[in-house]
Structures are given as C-alpha cells and as structure tokens.
C-alpha cells in the first residue's frame, strides 16, 4: 500500500464520516461543522493527486468562506433549533429518498465498473510547450487565462451579479415585515398528503395573499 493510497483512504474515511454527519446531525451548527470536516477531507484528496492549487482554494473558499457564511446565517437568524429527524411530513418521501439514493449509488458504481478508465495515471505536471515541466499552478493558470479566458471573465461577471443579487435580496425592506402566507397543508409527490387535504380554495387564497404581499413591497 503506497503512501498515496494510504492518504487517500484516510482522507476518504474523513470525507465519508463528515458527509454522513452533515446529513444526520440534528443541529444545523453541527452539520456545518461536519461539512468543514468533509471539505478538509476533500482538500486532502486533492493533494493526494497533486492538485495543490485547488486544494488551497478548497480550504480557503469552501472551509474558510462558505461554511463561515453558513454559520453566520445560522447565528444571524437564530435558526439553530434542532430538527426532529424522526418525523417525516411528506408521506413516502424518506423511503423513496433512500431508494433513490441507493439506486443512484448502485448505478454510478455499475457505470464506473463498466466504464473502464483507460488513461495513464500520473503526474499532471506534464511538460509545457517549451518542454520543461511546469508546476500545477502554472498549468492551471495557463489554461484558465488562455483557452478558458472567456469563461473566466464570465465567472467574474457571475460573481458580481451574485453579490449584487444577494445584497438586494437580503436588504431590509422599510416598513413592517409581512409574514409569509400560511400554508396549512403539505402534500407529497403524489403519494398522498398529511394534514388536511389541500383544496383549490386554499391555494387561491395563498396566491391572493402572495399578491397582496407583492403589492406592498
């Protein structure tokens, strides 16, 4: 067992336990912490195949920025109350979710099995145009700023737009806040419903309420 494989397996266990933790943690804060674990694990996996730059980005952007953002939101809104995972309001959702997840897993594995990756694993630090072997970061940079430069520019725009959008969305609207319309009933994906059955009347009322709200804002 090479060091490479060993590192992969260790990090893999970290990733898997972390992701299971995200899914199973009742408390969102815990879930966020598990997410950090996972992301670190993934960063390690990146390192294993010598994607140094991406590993760094992974830690900085994901663990450093995104998860912190999650935690900020949790704190800011005080939505840190635990979720009761033993209850499932939508009938049939959970079993079907497991079936679907398992099916996806099985099918992906089957595809992986049948696909047969034929490339030569190795160092992506391939020789550059001048024949010298360039570091990973240089290669990445060259690709991004030459072939993919248009996409890169677009991502820049995307981020700007996203920031503006986020500001607009999260901006506090003057005046009293209107509560969201109360939706009394929840019905599943055609598998029956909980609570009282939804009727058109309710839906219309809800729509009407939504309209009013829109007018006010």
């Amino acid at each position: 067992m090479s060091l490479q494989l060993f590192s992969f397996l260790v990090a893999g266990v970290v990733v898997l336990t972390g992701s299971l933790g995200v899914v199973m943690a009742k408390h969102p804060v815990h879930a966020a912490l598990f997410l950090i674990q996972t992301l670190f694990g993934v960063a390690v996996e990146f390192l294993v195949v010598e994607a140094h730059f991406l590993a760094a980005i992974q830690v900085i952007v994901y663990a450093g920025a995104i998860v912190i953002l999650f935690l900020f939101v949790i704190m800011l809104l005080g939505v840190d109350n635990a979720e009761d995972l033993s209850v499932e309001p939508i009938i049939g959702q959970r079993p079907l979710a497991f079936v679907g997840g398992a099916a996806i897993l099985g099918l992906l594995l089957a595809i992986i099995n049948s696909a047969g990756i034929t490339g030569v694993p190795g160092n992506v630090d391939a020789p550059g145009p001048t024949g010298e072997v360039l570091p990973n970061v240089n290669q990445l940079a060259e690709s991004i700023f030459t072939e993919q430069v248009f996409a890169f520019e677009v991502t820049g725009i995307l981020l700007t737009v996203a920031v503006v959008g986020a500001v607009v969305m999260a901006r506090r609207i003057p005046g009293a806040l209107q509560p969201l319309p109360d939706i009394p009933a929840i019905s599943g994906f055609g598998f029956g419903s909980t609570g009282d059955t939804d009727t058109d009347g309710d839906a219309d009322a809800a729509m009407a309420a939504g309209d009013e709200q829109g007018d006010d804002s």
Binding site: V15, L16, S19, L20, V23, L85, L105, L109
Partner: peptide, 15 residues
C-alpha cells in the same frame, strides 16, 4: 468515493 458522497448528499437533500 465520489459516488458515495454524491449519494449521501442526494439523500440528505431529500430527507
């Protein structure tokens, strides 16, 4: 590994 994480994530979104 990717398949496993993906499936766990998918189940998580659903559950």
């Amino acid at each position: 590994l990717s398949a496993l994480v993906f499936s766990i994530g998918a189940v998580g979104v659903l559950v």
